[in-house]
Computed example of a mutant assay.
Amino acid sequence: MNDPSPQVRFVHVPALGRAPGYSHLAEVRGGRTVYVSGQIAVDEHGEAVGVGDFTAQARKVFENIGLALAEVGLTFDSVVKLTFFLTDFAHLGQMRAVRDEFVNVAAPPASSAVQVAALVRPELLIEVEAIAVLP
């Protein structure tokens, strides 16, 4: 991964404790902001991918975010915030492992994770939305 832009500063706040795999905040100084709607594990035909396999679904979700970012000329290097919606926090470790395949682990985006009762389709286990900034 490339170093983050000098227009974006990822901050770990010591007084907030250790932040494993995410930054406490991302400061953006100027630039264009892109909001990626929550992505789910579906292919270009709307068919679910990886039914029953959390890791496969998570990977497809991140691939879909990558496709959305590419449409406006961005990559994961531009992502400053991720929000995860999981149907079961038991998958948190798997989610982090897949996330780390896509983001700059030296300067990870600010992140939030929420456990939800269900997603838009019953076979889905994860949804992720992203905010990206291009200076």
Rank of each mutant, 00 (worst) to 15 (best):
N2T: 12
N2E: 12
D3S: 14
P4H: 07
S5W: 02
S5M: 01
P6G: 01
P6S: 03
Q7N: 15
Q7W: 12
V8G: 00
V8T: 04
V8Q: 03
V8N: 00
R9K: 15
R9H: 12
R9M: 11
F10S: 05
V11H: 11
V11T: 13
H12V: 14
H12E: 14
H12Q: 15
V13W: 09
P14K: 13
P14W: 10
P14S: 12
A15M: 13
A15R: 15
L16D: 14
G17M: 07
G17N: 07
P20L: 06
G21E: 00
H24V: 06
L25N: 09
L25R: 10
A26C: 06
E27P: 09
R29Y: 10
R29N: 14
G31N: 01
G31H: 01
V34Q: 08
V34Y: 09
V36K: 01
V36R: 02
G38F: 06
G38D: 08
Q39V: 05
Q39D: 07
A41T: 05
V42C: 10
E44Y: 10
E44H: 15
H45C: 11
H45P: 10
H45K: 14
G46W: 06
E47R: 15
A48C: 14
G50Q: 03
G50A: 04
V51W: 08
D53S: 09
D53F: 06
F54N: 00
Q57K: 04
Q57D: 04
Q57F: 02
Q57C: 05
A58H: 02
R59C: 02
V61I: 05
F62S: 03
E63K: 01
N64L: 01
N64C: 04
I65V: 05
G66S: 01
A68G: 07
L69Q: 00
A70Q: 09
A70N: 08
E71G: 12
E71K: 11
L74F: 03
D77A: 08
S78F: 03
V79W: 00
L82E: 02
L82Q: 00
T83F: 10
T83I: 11
F84N: 08
F84P: 03
F85Q: 12
L86S: 06
D88T: 06
D88S: 09
D88G: 07
F89I: 10
A90C: 09
H91Q: 14
L92N: 11
L92G: 11
M95I: 10
R96P: 10
A97P: 07
R99W: 03
R99I: 04
R99P: 03
R99F: 05
R99V: 05
R99G: 01
D100C: 07
E101T: 07
V103H: 01
V103R: 02
V105Y: 09
V105S: 12
V105H: 09
A107N: 12
A107C: 10
P108E: 00
S111P: 09
S112Y: 12
A113V: 15
Q115M: 13
Q115L: 09
Q115H: 09
A117M: 14
A118D: 12
L119F: 05
L119Y: 05
V120G: 14
V120F: 12
R121S: 14
E123P: 08
E123M: 13
E123C: 10
E123V: 11
L124K: 05
L125Y: 06
I126H: 04
E127S: 15
E127G: 12
E127F: 06
A130K: 00
I131Q: 08
I131V: 15
A132F: 02
A132D: 01
P135C: 02
P135N: 04
